[in-house]
Design a protein around this nucleic acid. Structure first.
Lengths: 196, 196, 196, 196
DNA sequence: TTTT
DNA sequence: TTTT
């Protein structure tokens, strides 16, 4: 209850891919996304316009994972509030590797931005998934800055593994499923221009 | 659950006075503090050093209010995460007045900074109240950025009045008490050089 | 240079009205907007869905004020990062009044969200102003979290008056102008359902 | 100047070690610290108290690096505001590796917390370095939420390499020096129980 | 009113 | 490695 320290990450960016959703043994959902934030600046020497894109791994747990899986798509713009977490895993050579992620679970915030797409299309680029209902909006639990998504759940970050691996290697980290989950996975394998 | 918008305030400052704690009809605590944040800069024209102090009204609800009342004191340094809220009240002339406060309830975060005072003294200046146990630290519910104060309570900001007045005028908003609370109060009456 | 304290506000919301832009004596722009953030929750007792909208006064200074005036419109969704500031003014009865605003100047961040409107229309509802160029994006100076809007200007918050009134009463706080500015104004007069 | 996206990290924690400071070819300082944030919670099942510490790599550039090197020490409590950045490097086997850091340069914020130590001692545990002057406080450039550390420098994040490696392997990343800097280094080599 |  |  009493903690020392603040560990907060706030991101607004666009998804590089559709979310990857899978399920934990206890049935809790886990969704991985990659989020691009880009900055541009004018080079002081040359005066030319520069740009750099940073890619972030974001992991949703629980209800937010389900919502992310259902409504976010490649290209979606999203606001995310979570905490930094580095987890350890072994590569094929048995070497320890570390991956830093932004963990968003109860207490975190996820908010889709930009309103619904007005056009049709089948879940296409940069928009929202044409889901049943949600007119967009914010989802979260127990987070206040996000003004009102108050913690409905119990007093522990059950969803979020505290440092332990939550996915098993060898298992294809695939789409939604109710089968046994996977543990100790390497980072998801994205397109090549995503630097991890 | 689904919200539109983000409303977040993050402050680190020192208390101008001891907290004012009172209780709502349902027994919930409410604690008011004023927090000073100051900035200094060098004047571009004159080159002289300038300083400006901003005073913030912060209102804690529920458990955080109790903790604030117990452990914070005039001069304490504190980290606070809450949301902006403007409430309406009537002055003596019946005129509508508005006061903007930083509301910190479940979902918000309060963390005492700077560690415990090592010296003795009777709860004196700028430090921590010599309370029974708490070795300092962070208190909050359902907030994640603060990494682990996970929402133990139910799904609604019960503590925090949603715009409705929570204190009754005429009633002296006084020190801790278990008597009936007060509604629709004007902002706390501080010294005159406090700009609100 | 060395400061004590953190004073940060982060908002994502929609504009209640078109921005009000005016100019300071030194030619610097000042833009006022009102931003709505809303929260919804389910009442624990009744189980019914509740909603509450909070309105925020946001003041942009300098370059950001110009950009806000040019590209933001009623209904635009925007991310804003600034600081809390309470300023004092006199009402008609000569009474001291206080207004709390979110000040966004150099060092602050303003980012339009949701991408450009694809449709035509003349600057209409909820979208972006059909300005010349900006494909949306973030504007700011010297803010890093916003990743790359690096302080181009000199070492002082020139734009933002530090506590001094910046608008003169009696002067209609009107649309863009290069005439003399106004000082010590009351808060802007909005529609009636905006609670200030 | 115009950016898309927000990339912000806010941390409050204690240093695990004294800062490591070195200098770039252009004379700019770079300081690395590791910051611990810890969370505690009560296990829902067992009811026992749990704790988890997260370690963060933080890299300061420019003026902030110098200040960090001069005044921060192992155990110091500090507020840090920066952005997430993942950089690529090669391990001994020529394999690509990635390290995620919190970059704090102009536009970021660093603030020492807890006031000066009142006791004597030689720069000892958990406190402040007994430097010449700085009575503690916040340091930053162009950051506004931190209320007043306004961008004194030019319009570009000169200090912080944008993705390019900034340290050369083979070079011992050592204490302050004015010799040539190092590029493309692996993460600092800490004790083995540090999970990265 | 705080703090440096 | 920090801190409580």
């Amino acid at each position: 209850m009493a903690n020392r320290g603040i560990n907060k990450v706030i991101l607004i960016g666009h998804l590089g891919q559709d979310p990857e959703v899978r399920y934990m043994p206890n049935g809790n959902a886990v969704a991985n996304i990659t989020l691009a934030t880009s900055e541009t600046w004018r080079d002081k020497q040359t005066g030319e316009q520069k740009e750099r894109t940073e890619w972030h791994r974001v992991v949703f747990f629980g209800k937010l994972a389900e919502i992310a899986g259902e409504y976010l798509r490649k290209g979606s713009q999203v606001y995310v509030e979570g905490r930094l977490q580095t987890r350890k895993w072994q590569d094929q050579g048995g070497q320890d590797r570390y991956t830093t992620e932004v963990v968003v679970d109860m207490g975190g915030v996820m908010q889709m931005l930009g309103g619904r797409p007005q056009g049709g299309g089948q879940g296409g680029q940069g928009g929202w998934n044409q889901g049943g209902q949600p007119a967009g909006g914010q989802y979260g639990a127990g987070q206040q800055g996000g003004q009102g998504n108050w913690g409905q759940q119990g007093g522990q970050p059950q969803g979020a593994p505290q440092g332990q691996p939550y996915a098993q290697q060898g298992q294809p980290a695939s789409k939604p499923q109710s089968q046994p989950p996977v543990y100790n996975e390497p980072p998801m394998d994205f397109d090549d221009d995503i630097p991890f």
